[in-house]
Structure formats: structure tokens, C-alpha cells
């Protein structure tokens, strides 16, 4: 078993920018000399459905998937998705979650209920939960579109690599016009 491999699950709602976050993470781990696999979801589920991206790094990574009970960290862009993907968290794993709530269509239509106090209930199970209002922080940075970078910032703080390294990767990856906003968003997440 590849115990030296770290597993990061990024979950959210199609359109929230999980792909860019995973791409930036992948680059960071490659720069640190690790073997890396990132698995993405394209196509139909991107249209507002539940989406998941797997990021794995270590000495040698075989599978590109992260399975139930394997994630060291789950980064959730939305509360309900944190609950949905909770079974993938390893015992002792950490959940970093946006506090934003996005109602899925069955909830909008009144056919299902959005559970209340999702993150508190996960915390009560003994899971370490780092919660932040990434949408508000992104708006503070200048655009709601930077929600993904706020969450990346929060995760980066937890992962422990150098802050400048992350900022360098952001500068070379995002469109030049959005560098300032994304830097600010990253720091708001990093310092939250």
C-alpha cells in the first residue's frame, strides 16, 4: 500500500472552479518533486451537478482515484457536498469547507430538505473541520469567481508549503488581468 501518498479530495458544485484549484495544487506538488495524479470531471456533471476532483501526491502514485476511507483532506466548496463526500475521509482526516449553501434542484422544488447545521454535525463526529465563508472573502477580494482561490489559500496554510510558492504558481497560471484579485483572494483564505 502506498502509505506515503497524500490524498486530497476537492468537492463542490459544477461551475464553482474546482478544476482550477486542483490544477494549481497539482503544479505545486510537481514543483516539490512529487509524483502526482489529478483526476477531473468534465462533461455533463459540470452543469451544476455534484463534482469531485482527486489530487494525489507522493513518491509513486498508481491509482488516480481516491476511494471511501482514503482522503487525508477534503476541501469542500459547499456544505452539502461536504456531507455527501464525508465517507471518503480517512479517520483522523481534515475537512476544509466553505460555509456557503447552494440549494440543489430537489430542494428548490421542495421535494427534499437541505439538512441544517451540516458542518456542526460533522464536527460532532470528531472530525477536524476548518470552516470559512469563502464566498464573502472572494467578494471582498473583488469577485465571487475567486471563491476557489480563497479555499486554495485556506488549504495551502494547512498543507504547509511556502506561501510564496503558491503565489508564484497562481501568477503564472491565471489570466494576467486577474492576478491581483487572485493574490488577494489567496491571502484572505490563507489568513482566515
Amino acid at each position: 500500500m502506498a502509505d506515503s501518498v497524500k490524498n486530497i479530495l476537492i468537492v463542490g458544485v459544477g461551475g464553482q472552479g474546482t478544476l482550477l484549484a486542483s490544477k494549481l495544487m497539482g503544479k505545486c506538488f510537481v514543483d516539490q518533486g512529487y509524483d502526482v495524479k489529478v483526476s477531473e470531471v468534465h462533461g455533463m456533471s459540470q452543469r451544476g451537478g455534484s463534482v469531485v476532483t482527486y489530487v494525489r501526491y507522493g513518491d509513486k502514485v498508481y491509482s488516480s482515484l481516491i476511494e471511501k476511507g482514503e482522503a487525508d483532506i477534503i476541501i469542500s466548496f459547499e456544505q452539502l457536498e461536504a456531507a455527501r463526500w464525508l465517507p471518503f475521509l480517512k479517520p483522523g482526516g481534515v475537512l476544509i469547507s466553505n460555509t456557503q449553501q447552494i440549494d440543489p434542484m430537489p430542494v428548490i422544488m421542495g421535494k427534499a430538505t437541505y439538512p441544517d447545521k451540516v458542518l456542526d454535525k460533522i464536527r460532532e463526529k470528531g472530525v477536524q473541520v476548518i470552516a470559512l465563508d469563502a464566498k464573502s472573502l472572494a467578494l471582498e477580494a473583488g469577485t465571487v469567481k475567486a471563491t476557489n482561490i480563497v479555499l486554495l489559500g485556506a488549504a495551502a496554510k494547512f498543507l504547509g508549503f511556502d506561501r510564496e510558492l503558491w503565489l508564484d504558481i497562481i501568477r503564472t497560471t491565471v489570466p494576467p488581468k486577474t492576478v491581483a484579485v487572485n493574490e488577494k483572494a489567496f491571502d484572505l483564505g490563507y489568513n482566515s
Binding site: 452543469r47 476511507g69 482514503e70 465517507p87 480517512k90 454535525k121 472530525v127
Partner: peptide, 20 residues
């Protein structure tokens, strides 16, 4: 073998893809 896992104890509404 089954890896240990945690579950959320309430029903979780599905999130099907939708027209934008």
C-alpha cells in the same frame, strides 16, 4: 477488506446537473 469510513447520518438531497 473494507476501509473504515464515516457517514453523515441524515438523508442528503441529490444534486443532479441542471440547465444553467
Amino acid at each position: 477488506e473494507e476501509l473504515p469510513r464515516q457517514t453523515f447520518d441524515e438523508p442528503i438531497p441529490p444534486r443532479p446537473p441542471v440547465l444553467c
